[in-house]
Design a protein around this nucleic acid. Structure first.
Length: 155
DNA sequence: GCCAACGTTGGC
DNA sequence: GCCAACGTTGGC
């Protein structure tokens, strides 16, 4: 099993939106960055655990956990001319953009970017180095450390 | 709202 | 295939 961090802007789609959609899974759509796309298409697998991260907001932070319930499938918006995600160069027989389906698991007490940056134990997380990557891998060690952050005596 | 960092585009 | 110009992301 692998671990990931997915960014989202809470004004557009927040952890609560994900929670409220719990009955139906949520298709993680609109990723239009090649590195992020490659992770989604090739490496994100059923059962993988995902940190949901709120970006471009008052307190950028990890706010919860979701799980992959369906592996990569083409993002239908790329074929829809009326969509912001439309890509005229993408063809249905060779789609360029993919998404995965995820389901809400739990909310966490927010772990702010500030805390993450200040923690010397977090080394590998791409978020630490000014990253604009919207889908990124998290090591098992760092995922578990962050997941249990607020239980830790080490703070 | 500013701006730094980085990704993408397109001319050559 | 280089690289300058431009666009976007995202923290502050």
């Amino acid at each position: 099993m692998a671990y990931w961090l997915f960014k989202t802007e809470p004004d557009a789609f927040s952890i609560d939106d994900l929670k409220n959609a719990q009955e139906q899974s949520t298709f993680w759509e609109g990723v239009r960055n090649y590195q992020a796309r490659n992770f989604l298409r090739d490496d994100v697998k059923l059962g993988d655990q995902i940190f949901i991260y709120h970006s471009s907001c008052k307190v950028p932070a990890i706010v919860g956990i979701a799980e992959v319930t369906e592996e990569a499938h083409p993002d239908p918006h790329q074929f829809d001319p009326s969509s912001d995600y439309f890509d005229e160069k993408s063809k249905p027989d060779s789609p360029k953009w993919f998404g995965v389906t995820v389901q809400f698991r739990e909310k966490l007490r927010p772990i702010s970017l500030k805390q993450i940056k200040a923690d010397p134990r977090i080394i590998d997380l791409p978020l630490k180095k000014a990253g604009r990557l919207s889908i990124m891998p998290v090591t098992e060690e760092e995922f578990l450390l962050l997941k249990h952050y607020h239980n830790s005596e080490q703070l």
